[in-house]
Simulated scan of single mutants.
Amino acid sequence: MKTKKLFILSLAAGAILMTSCVSKKELVACQDENKSLTQNYMSAKEQLAAANSRVSSLEAQLAQAQKDYARLQRSLDKSLTNANQNNVSIEKLVDQINESNQYIRHLVEVKSKSDSLNMVLTNNLTRSLSREELKEVDVQVLKGVVYISLADNMLYKSGSYEINDRAAETLSKIAKIIMDYKDYDVLVEGNTDNVPISRENIRNNWDLSCLRASSVVQFLQTRYGVDPKRLTAGGRGEYNPLTTNNTEVGKQRNRRTQIIITPKLDQFMELIDQAPEKD
């Protein structure tokens, strides 16, 4: 009987011991699982916080974009309103720009042709003049206009407005150029130094400069047949000097007659008529 009790007690102790071992393993397993779940929860929580922050940023960007869109829409509406008020369409603006560009190209083409023609005119004239004549005749093209400047001592008798014999040959060469280019007008302009003059029928330098220009114009008309409708005579007295009148050399340069050859005025008027009309 005693032996049987001992056996029973031994079985009970073994059962308790086995139960204790199983419970400890389960506890460790539960603890590991809980730790893993805790880590997963914290990671998910961090990801959720990052996602919420991203959503907030995107919402802010969307709100700013909506504000920008609204501002642009208001600006566009205002522009369209102004355009409607002024009766200006995009097509009309494009047409106006195209017309302006066409007119500019036309002006450039006309200027190029004019410059080329003036250079030919200048070259023809300078080739026809002798070396001695070129010392007293200056030929230039400035802004599409040909300027022929002649010293007074080669054109006129001293203190006079009468053309001298020496000038006849030079003026004949200039007249030939003028006759060859019939689409050009000719202005003859007299200039003096500042030394006062008072002679019979010549009150001052205004008179002298005008009379000298008139003499050249009449010479070109009567001697060489230049159409008087193309000719204009004018005097500027002492008030258009090239340089100072304080030296004899300066005074000599200022005493000159200019023959200015320009395209006819009606050609410029025709060019203006071709300009696009303004609304």
Rank of each mutant, 00 (worst) to 15 (best):
L121W: 00
I261Y: 11
D77N: 10
E136G: 01
V141F: 07
S112F: 02
N194L: 09
L265I: 08
K251A: 09
V110P: 01
I104M: 09
E277K: 14
N124W: 00
D165N: 13
S215K: 07
I272T: 03
D193G: 04
D227M: 02
S128R: 12
K24W: 02
I90M: 09
V88T: 07
E238C: 05
L58V: 03
L37H: 11
N254G: 12
H106M: 10
D68M: 10
N204A: 05
D32Y: 11
K2E: 13
I163C: 10
E200V: 06
Q85P: 01
L150D: 00
I197T: 04
L58C: 09
M154D: 04
V110C: 00
L208G: 01
R131E: 03
L27T: 02
Q47C: 13
R127I: 01
D165P: 06
K45H: 08
A15R: 03
Q66N: 14
S79M: 06
M179F: 13
D115G: 03
V146L: 15
T38R: 07
K92T: 03
T81H: 09
E248L: 06
D227Y: 06
A70E: 10
D152Q: 14
Q47I: 14
K264D: 13
R105N: 12
N254P: 12
E238V: 01
L171Q: 03
Y239I: 02
R230Y: 15
R236M: 12
K157T: 07
D273G: 07
D180M: 04
S53N: 08
G234W: 07
Q85I: 13
S198H: 12
L231W: 10
